[in-house]
């Protein structure tokens, strides 16, 4: 019973997404992509545009990505301390 409901729901979700995508076509707006490609070497100075984005245009994202690594490692270290309780 649950498997039937899950399959119906998932197929319905897939059908809904496909119909919305196919009615407007896969048209990609190239506004920021053109800006990055044409102005990145003069503003940032790196020839690899992805590096330029990752380290200069979107620096705040990279800082907080390092932050989430820090918090995750601190959490794993904190959780793995042995404590004296037994079951429950």
């Amino acid at each position: 019973m649950r498997r039937l409901v899950s399959v119906v729901l998932v197929v319905f979700f897939a059908f809904l997404m496909m119909s919305r995508f196919l009615e407007s076509g896969f048209f990609v707006n190239e506004l920021s992509s053109n800006y990055y490609i044409f102005n990145s070497y003069t503003e940032v100075g790196s020839k690899n545009i992805v590096t330029g984005i990752y380290l200069d245009y979107r620096l705040l994202d990279s800082i907080f990505e390092a932050g989430i690594l820090l918090v995750s490692v601190a959490g794993v270290i904190f959780m793995s301390k042995k404590d004296e309780n037994v079951k429950r």
Partner: peptide, 22 residues
């Protein structure tokens, strides 16, 4: 590939690639 070259025709979009690294 989105690396600076002399002629740029149809370069891939670099922003989703940087987002996916994160």
């Amino acid at each position: 590939v989105p690396i600076y070259a002399e002629e740029m025709h149809k370069m891939a979009d670099p922003l989703p690639q940087a987002m996916m690294l994160t």
